[in-house]
């Protein structure tokens, strides 16, 4: 949000001794029936730390890429920066508003028109009606001509590509100093992807702080100067992107 207090002297993101613990079984949801008839819930109690002892600081305007294999904890870390997961240990301090490019289409309602959805989703992320009015044309322009012609049809009639485009257009219009990106660059056709890249570069030039999760090496090199390498929940390396990728590739080759 543009109104949030931004401390210009300190780091925009400070993570200290961060840890989060998960249950190993994916289905841990308990059932009252089981709890009543079998005493305890039938779910396994075994846990693991998805992230532990993570500490780093990020200054305003930095472009940071998260590197690591599947299950390394990248998305979990991003969610904690976005404030949608809470740490079990340590703390996350984020100075300033966050535009999360996570679950892009989460805020949209199928029954309403695209026009209504733009106002509602932007509103959910803190934009007032006047601010949306101001950016409305930009959003539609960015989302493309198909979206423009379908502005007054229910959102559920949109193709999945159009849905994601609209989501990307709305979130990147938020005037937030910190941008979190989770693998969304892989969506859309090539033309739209180029547009996304352009938008991201524009945002970087404006001095926003970027935090990117990606498996695509070219994307990581293109957008980030600094890399964080996560492996099985531990921060293995924090350094220039090229060095981090070299180390990551070296580790991959070593285990092959």
């Amino acid at each position: 949000m543009s109104t949030s207090q931004v401390d210009l002297t300190g780091p925009v993101i400070a993570v200290k001794d961060l840890g989060i613990e998960f249950y190993r079984s994916r289905r841990r949801r308990m059932q009252l029936r089981e709890m009543l008839f079998h005493g305890r819930s039938g779910a396994p109690r075994e846990t693991f730390w998805a992230l532990r002892n993570i500490s780093f600081e990020i200054q305003a305007g930095e472009a940071v890429g998260l590197v690591g294999g599947n299950g390394g904890g990248k998305s979990t870390l991003l969610k904690m920066l976005a404030g949608v997961l809470l740490p079990d240990e340590g703390e996350v301090t984020v100075n300033g508003g966050v535009a999360p490019l996570i679950e892009l289409t989460g805020g949209f309602v199928g029954e309403l028109t695209a026009r209504d959805n733009i106002y509602l989703t932007a509103g959910l992320h803190g934009l007032s009606k006047e601010q949306v009015d101001e950016h409305f044309d930009d959003i539609v322009e960015f989302a493309g001509p198909e979206v423009r012609s379908g502005l007054d049809t229910p959102y559920r009639h949109f193709s999945s590509g159009m849905k994601v485009r609209l989501g990307f257009a709305v979130i990147t219009t938020l005037d937030e100093p910190i941008i979190l990106v989770d693998e969304v660059l892989a969506v859309g056709d090539r033309k739209f992807r180029e547009k996304c890249y352009q938008r991201m570069e524009d945002l970087l030039v404006e001095g926003r702080t970027l935090f990117l999760v990606s498996h695509s090496e070219p994307d990581l090199r293109r957008f980030s100067t600094r890399g964080l390498y996560l492996q099985r929940g531990a921060l293995m390396m924090d350094g220039p992107m090229d060095d981090v990728l070299d180390r990551y590739n070296h580790d991959l080759d070593a285990t092959r």
Binding site: K79, A82, G83, V84, V98, P100, I102, E103, L104, T105, G106, G107, L124, H125
Partner: peptide, 9 residues
């Protein structure tokens, strides 16, 4: 769930 997971409210 989708909204809870994607917005910090």
């Amino acid at each position: 769930a989708k909204l809870v997971r994607s917005t910090n409210l």
